[in-house]
Nucleic acid binder design. Structure first.
Length: 1004
RNA sequence: GCGGGAGUGCCGGAGCGGUCAAACGGGAUAGGUUUAGGCCCUAUUGGCUUAGUGCCUGCGCAGGUUCGAACCCUGUCUCCCGCACCA
């Protein structure tokens, strides 16, 4: 048995000593940056799943390196984060201790996997010389308003004891704790303004050439760009006192516009209303005192035409002119009222000028409440509005109305609903006692608070069109709100009573004023234009993406470099004072952030006024660190700058990034955001960190679940390595399926690979080196080199390994071989099995490392298909002979093989030259009748690729030759004499049956 | 509901317009080797067939395009993954 472990150790040491994987910028050499997502150094160390991940990158890096690229292949650790802190709390220790132990362990294990990292570039994010630059970037963002603090509804995980970013909430649960419901809290938090780049992040997705479609789709989904229209609806929300002439309003109800004014008073009965100009007699007569209105009476000679009348009234009620509106018909009185600054509606007793009345009320009592819609074509069908139950200003609308109680009860009910039930929740709502005005037709529509409207998307309020939106439809049905059809399908008419669901497709507009008859798709454009012209709305784009909440109430993260001064307010830490270091002398007594009580950390002098000040104790999300680590690898030790732009522009962008797709909406968005920001402040010159992203599959344990320590199905590389050697493990891991698929670890499976590696070593130990050329093997080798290149590039290592196996199978049939061929074989095997190939390479007398040897160049001319066919041909002959032997039922002493008339030769060539309607018929014709036919059409592919047909062209001569070449082998195989007979017609007859173009076999 | 992906022997998986369906691995069965077991070697592993580069069936189901489809198109079913009341 081969001592793989000894070989591994030997070469790992040699590589390290010779520093062969360390790289420098070299303008003469083409660079290639291979990067795996760096790991969080968990204390449980590596299992086989990690080994698979890193092997994928390592094979790629080794392959590129041998192909003469200047390969940057670094490794580092995302070493700030909660688990280390939790471990510290548990053990009353410091997270740094845990982290640094874990890193040591990681490095040792990774080195044992034979990974070809440039260790000199290692980055550890918990080191102040790294997070200093996190803080530096923060300051740059702060300067530009991209880092800001605001009070917001945020996600809180009770177990992490900190807030979370939107991206870290999955199905309402914490990303780290699948059993913990995220709470919504109102807190003052730090944000990065990712939305500033929403559009570029969205549009840039298209340019990410070699990213998986699903990851790109996820990002598109997450950023959620949609085009639509903002429309200004109006809701009564200005707290003005309404002054109305009592006599007019209540006495002459039935005349002209007074009826409407009377209704108006009813409607606004929750507001302060003052009836003016009624004397005691009138009060009594109309029973005004029993009404919920205040009545203003002047003791002496009330004269509405005198401005003093209004001044006294305002003074009496302690009101200012701008607090009131007044309705009056007497022209003189209107003038006087207006002269005191009161907004006055001048109505005509006998005319019903509703339009003016509404307009007056709108401008004086209503304010704009914009809504976002993608369907402005349905605006005439709006029959209610729904404001989000979580809307910040809902309270403002409801306060003081008689519906306040209803609304509050409703809100309580929503809050008590669990997150899990929320998904299946029925649409519910409550009328809030307010009406909105549809700007396109001034219709009055009720406003509801609803549980299905998101507060932080669009405007937090929607216009509801029950006829043409399913959610609105359900809501309207439930609360018996009218359904108004404004779009009919092209071939029939809808009717509200008969609808069982909303009609959401295209159609023709009806009940839509001047837009009747317009196609709904066109109407979207036209109505938007109309609204824009009237200043009632505008075209717009909305994003689902929200700003990135980066502050965490935890210790083990990058401190936010901000100081709060009583005098100067919020003051950023000056650049020269960076880094703000995490203190070492902290006590983890509770689940609370120990920075809060660390006085030398918290109590500082204000950088501006030198007065007493306090430091921010929140730290940054760990994803901040990983958003730019790939840049630091380019210049990891720079203590003057974040990095040298020249070095970065040599190495970046990443040529091949490798990592899990689970980061699609987290790290993979953040690192694009950072890249764009750093570009905009002039540090880098590219738009995207990488255009090539490969998402590897996951390794599952033999029980079928994802391999992890907590699942208890982890397989340790150390143990596998002792049993089979790490090269065997690498080969096996990579050969189960293509690298994008999940695979299941199998103890049986690796044993198969173990046989293979052993056979290789064994063969090289015993092979006789000769100068003999073997054309057939050479063809096979060249073909294999070509195929392996393609398979590695395409992350189909499984196929590459198969080709290697097949090649080796062929090579090992001979017990002598020429040196070049053996070397080439080792070279193309070496990315997968670097240790044993180094060892065997050395055995062949090489002084340099195979890891840095040149990848062999294949020669297309040496790839000869006949050889491939030859094997197949011989295999078939063997099979046939075996069948015959079985049938005859005796051991043969002599086997005669008749090679008969060729028929294939030329058939295909002719087909290339002529045109075929039906290949099969023609072939049959030629086969059977032996003649050609005029054929009308060539299948294009025949012309394009005549080589396809040469493969099967074997004539009698060639077949005879092949058989003669293999005569010895056949004789050995069957332990019988072999006679090969090039048959003419007469000899064919000697065989029992002779088919044209086939061999006939006779056993004696 | 929206979006992404996948359905191929007993299993994992190749093939992605014609050479050629099932490479390669695992499993199973039979035989050889062996004192025995393991290792190793050989053969078989959709159906039919007494010598075939044979015939039939067949790549989830149903259609279509094509001289020709596992592969392209349409519909349909099933499964996996992501997002989810996004107005």
């Amino acid at each position: 048995m081969v001592n793989f472990q000894k070989i591994e150790k030997k070469w790992q040491d040699k590589w390290e000593k010779a520093k062969i994987f360390q790289v420098k910028e070299d303008s003469k050499k083409k660079k290639f940056y291979v990067l795996e997502m760096y790991p969080y150094p968990s204390s449980s160390g590596l299992h086989m799943g990690h080994a698979l991940n890193y092997t994928i990158g390592d094979v790629y890096a080794r392959f590129k390196r041998m192909n003469n690229y200047n390969v940057l292949y670094p490794m580092g650790y995302d070493s700030l984060g909660l688990p280390a802190e939790n471990a510290a709390i548990k053990n009353k220790s410091h997270p740094r201790i845990f982290t640094e132990d874990a890193i040591k362990n990681f490095i040792r294990q990774q080195k044992e996997l034979g990974l070809s990292y440039d260790w000199s570039r290692m980055v550890e994010t918990h080191k102040p010389d790294y997070y200093k630059w996190d803080q530096w970037i923060f300051l740059k963002m702060y300067e530009r308003g991209l880092a800001y603090k605001k009070k917001a509804s945020v996600n809180w995980c009770g177990k992490c004891n900190t807030v979370l970013a939107n991206e870290q909430v999955h199905d309402g649960k914490c990303w780290r704790h699948k059993d913990v419901d995220v709470e919504i809290k109102q807190l003052e938090q730090w944000f990065f303004k990712t939305t500033e780049y929403a559009d570029e992040l969205y549009e840039g997705i298209e340019k990410l050439k070699n990213w998986n479609d699903d990851v790109k789709a996820m990002q598109r989904n997450w950023i959620g760009k949609s085009y639509g229209t903002i429309i200004n609806f109006k809701i009564e929300n200005k707290n003005k006192v309404i002054l109305v002439d009592a006599i007019n309003a209540f006495v002459i109800k039935e005349r002209g516009i007074f009826k409407e004014m009377h209704q108006l008073l009813e409607e606004f009965s929750n507001k302060k209303i003052i009836l003016t100009n009624a004397n005691d007699e009138e009060k009594k007569k109309f029973n005004l005192n029993s009404m919920p209105y205040e009545v203003f009476t002047l003791k002496h000679s009330p004269d509405k035409t005198n401005p003093d009348y209004y001044k006294q009234m305002l003074k009496h009620f302690c009101l200012k002119a701008e607090d009131v509106i007044y309705f009056e018909h007497n022209e003189e009185a209107v003038k006087s009222a207006r002269s005191t600054g009161i907004e006055t509606f001048h109505y005509d007793k006998d005319k019903k000028d509703l339009k003016s009345l509404r307009k007056f009320i709108c401008t004086n009592l209503h304010e704009n409440w914009p809504v976002f819609t993608t369907r402005p074509d349905t605006i005439y069908g709006v029959t209610f509005m729904v404001i989000s139950a979580q809307h910040q200003r809902l309270n403002e609308l409801v306060k003081g109305t008689k519906y306040e109680k209803d609304v509050n009860n409703f809100l309580k009910k929503i809050k008590s609903t669990k997150q899990e039930d929320l998904d299946k929740l029925e649409k519910e709502g409550v009328f809030i006692g307010k009406y909105a005005v549809n700007p396109i037709n001034n219709e009055k529509i009720p406003v509801y608070a609803g549980n299905f409207v998101l507060a932080d998307y669009g405007c937090g309020m929607v216009m509801a069109v029950p006829a043409h939106d399913q959610r609105d439809f359900e809501f309207a049905k439930k609360y018996k709100i009218p359904i108004k059809i404004v779009i009919n399908p092209n071939d029939y008419s809808l009717s509200p009573d008969k609808m069982s669901r909303a009609y959401t497709s295209d159609g023709v507009l009806v009940n839509s004023g001047e837009f009747n008859g317009t196609n709904s798709t066109d109407a979207i454009e036209e109505i938007t234009k109309y609204l824009e012209k009237k200043n009632l709305g505008k075209k717009t784009v909305q994003y689902k993406l929200k700003d990135w909440l980066i502050s965490r109430q935890r210790f083990w993260g990058t401190p936010i470099p901000i100081i709060y001064c009583a005098k100067c307010g919020m003051v950023p830490v000056p650049e020269k004072d960076l880094p703000v270091k995490l203190p070492d002398d902290v006590k983890f007594t509770s689940n609370e952030n120990p920075l809060l009580n660390h006085s030398s950390f918290v109590n500082v002098k204000c950088p501006k006024c030198n007065g007493k000040a306090k430091r921010e104790t929140d730290t940054m999300d760990t994803f901040v660190n990983s958003s730019w680590y790939f840049l630091r690898y380019c210049d990891p030790k720079n203590d003057k700058k974040i990095f040298d732009s020249k070095k970065v522009s040599y190495w970046m962008p990443i040529d091949q990034y490798i990592g899990g797709r689970e980061h699609a909406c987290m790290h993979l968005i953040y690192f694009r955001f950072y890249t764009k920001f750093l570009r905009d402040i002039g540090l880098i010159k590219f738009d995207e960190p990488t255009y090539n992203l490969f998402n590897q599959g996951m390794l599952h344990g033999e029980d079928g679940t994802v391999m992890s320590k907590s699942a208890g199905n982890g397989v340790l590389p150390e143990e596998v390595s002792v049993k089979y050697g790490i090269d065997t493990a690498r080969l096996f891991l990579v050969s189960m399926a293509s690298q994008d698929k999940d695979v299941i670890w199998s103890e049986k499976g690796i044993q198969g690979t173990y046989k293979f590696t052993n056979k290789i070593v064994d063969y090289f130990d015993n092979v006789e080196i000769s100068k003999k050329k073997n054309e057939k093997l050479e063809s096979n080798l060249n073909k294999t080199i070509k195929e392996i290149e393609e398979h590695i590039e395409g992350f189909k290592y499984n196929l590459a390994v198969i080709k290697l196996r097949q090649l080796f199978e062929n090579i090992s049939k001979e017990n002598e071989a020429n040196k070049e061929m053996l070397e080439d074989f080792l070279k193309i095997l070496s990315p997968f099995a670097p240790h044993i190939t180094e060892e065997l390479w050395e055995k062949l007398g090489n002084k340099e490392f195979i890891s840095t040897a040149k990848w062999p160049k294949y020669d297309e001319k040496k790839i000869k298909i006949e050889f491939e066919f030859e094997d197949e041909f011989i295999e078939r002959i063997k099979h046939d002979i075996n069948t015959v032997i079985k049938l005859v039922g005796k051991e043969p002493s002599l086997i005669k093989i008749f090679v008969s008339e060729p028929w294939k030769y030329g058939v295909y060539k002719k087909l290339i030259k002529t045109e075929s309607r039906d290949m099969k018929t023609i072939i049959n014709d030629i086969m059977v009748k032996g003649h050609e036919k005029e054929i009308p059409r060539i299948a294009q592919s025949f012309i394009k690729n005549p080589n396809n047909f040469d493969k099967v062209v074997l004539d009698q001569e060639k077949e005879t030759k092949i058989l003669n070449d293999n005569k010895k082998e056949l004789e050995e195989y069957f332990k019988a004499g072999i006679e090969i007979i090039k048959a003419d017609k007469s000899e064919e007859g000697k065989a029992k049956q002779a088919y044209p173009g086939k061999v006939a076999i006779l056993i004696e």
